[in-house]
């Protein structure tokens, strides 16, 4: 693998293309990364990619940005990392701003409102489905249920902010688990 010849423009436009053709966020980008970055350009191996995703999933931020940062850094250091991320987000940010400018003029239209009436139900289903899919990998034991219930009470009853709940859960992770038997 020869990574010396990769230019910043190549990195930018490779990720630009991925940002433009990925629908549905981080995980939908994985097959594109496989064909573009692994098979076509040999910038990373399949195993690298899976590692980047595993790390991206448990570090803060957007998973697709994490993966792009890893590959960009591997190719050209910090500047490569920045090129990859900017390339990835440029097409979608431009499109969103275009849509936002146009759509805001039509939000009062009857058909637009009816369409969004339907879409809102779909969005609710999307979000609940995310919880459903994450449930098994996130809550594995009694401790998990307690943290889940505690967080839910803090949010729904006491109206705590999302950041405070994440911080409290991180602190709670250090409370020792007395129910665990040391000897089998």
């Amino acid at each position: 693998m020869n990574t010396n010849k990769v230019t910043f423009l190549q990195i930018f436009f490779t990720f630009f293309k991925m940002g433009l053709f990925t629908f549905g966020g981080g995980y939908a980008m994985l097959p594109l990364l496989q064909s573009e970055v692994v098979e076509k350009r040999h910038w990373a191996t399949e195993e690298d990619l899976l590692n980047y995703y595993a790390i991206g999933q448990c570090t803060p931020g957007i998973i697709a940005v994490n993966a792009a940062s890893f590959i960009g850094y591997k190719l050209r250091g910090l500047a490569g990392l920045i090129c990859a991320t900017l390339g990835l987000i440029t097409p979608s940010v431009s499109l969103i701003l275009l849509v936002a400018t146009i759509l805001n003029q039509y939000m009062e239209n009857v058909y637009v409102q009816q369409a969004f009436g339907g879409i809102r139900i779909c969005v609710l289903a999307l979000i609940v489905n995310t919880v459903w899919n994450m449930w098994q990998s996130s809550i594995k034991n009694v401790r998990g249920y307690i943290v889940f219930a505690g967080a839910a009470i803090l949010l729904f009853v006491f109206n705590l902010s999302a950041i405070s709940v994440v911080l409290l859960a991180a602190i709670a992770a250090f409370i020792p688990n007395y129910s665990r038997r040391k000897k089998p």
Partner: peptide
């Protein structure tokens, strides 16, 4: 430790 709390967060958003 954070994962279960994240689920509660998303449910709150729902």
């Amino acid at each position: 430790g954070i994962k279960p709390a994240v689920l509660a967060l998303i449910l709150f958003a729902a």
